[in-house]
Nucleic acid binder design. Structure first.
Lengths: 152, 152
DNA sequence: AATATTAACGAAAATTTTTCGCCTATGCAT
DNA sequence: ATGCATAGGCGAAAAATTTTCGTTAATATT
């Protein structure tokens, strides 16, 4: 698999706005509509493009509170790890969860309406998962940057 | 602004796959194609839908290393804060940056090729920004969950 | 030199988006 | 109660886009 400069430019454009027409893309890339169409298909089939999604304004859907939450398990047996990961993946408030190096085992990005709801999430959902040793939360004061665009 | 159940279902569908045709959506929602079209337009105009993007497979574009990086500034004057935030936002390796509560001032999500490149990023880019007091990095061992879907 | 392979192209066909005029239900004011 | 405005919905037609198809050119392979 080799991506040439045209592919890279195309990926950049599609990561910014995937609803552009092939005609608009062809103008920027200096290709025919069909050539653009075929390149996009190729990138999809290669699995370079995963999917196409709508991104929402979180404030407009009343989810204005973001927190990062560290979690430490009481033990690191395969069993505990698998169970924790399965349960945490089910929680809709958890947008991201990573197993990380360092003092804690996991870092979670949590999105809820407000502090009230965060408390409910912690008490009624996260800490209900078994085998959690301790947690440590950090609250987002301001979102400085947030992009889904990978530089290729 | 009021979102009814149909709007919420529509947002859920578009967050999963925004390339579905209005016909496919109309089947799920039990509406006409035109009604779906008009609802989507409404959600765009209300600013509920921000944009439509292609999501890439980061491994396929050779960016397999994710790190979270805490940053503490030496001082918190308006001037230092503004400058740091402006500079960090320019860095293509930084996908997310949040001003947070707690021991550190910021948390950054950094995406690069490998540990080698991370080192280069730290030495030649991040720590070149003035007024940084200290940093603390955590490396992602495994991505347990990563979604852009907000539950509405 | 002959032959695959890859990428590109324009035209035509198929499908989708978008516009339009009209209808119905609901809430509000008369 | 009656009239009116608003919001949401609909199908048909028009406009635009996607997708297919047959061909061509360039490059690598045998």
């Amino acid at each position: 698999m080799h991506l040439d400069q045209t592919d890279k430019t195309l990926l950049k454009l599609l990561q910014k706005d995937c609803k552009q027409t092939n005609k608009a893309l062809s103008n920027v890339l200096g290709l025919s509509v069909t050539a653009v169409y075929e390149r996009i298909r190729k990138l999809e089939n290669l699995g370079v493009i995963n999917n196409y999604v709508a991104l929402l304004n979180k404030e407009r859907v009343d989810k204005s509170f973001v927190a990062f939450c560290h979690v430490k398990l009481v033990q690191h047996s395969q069993d505990y790890v698998v169970k924790f990961e399965r349960e945490v993946a089910k929680l809709q408030e958890v947008l991201e969860c990573y197993h990380i190096s360092g003092d804690y085992d996991y870092i979670l990005k949590v999105l809820v309406k407000d502090m009230q709801e965060f408390r409910t999430f912690m008490v009624e959902k996260l800490t209900k998962i078994n085998h959690i040793g301790s947690t440590h939360s950090m609250f987002v004061i301001n979102e400085v940057k947030h992009t889904t665009t990978i530089s290729v």
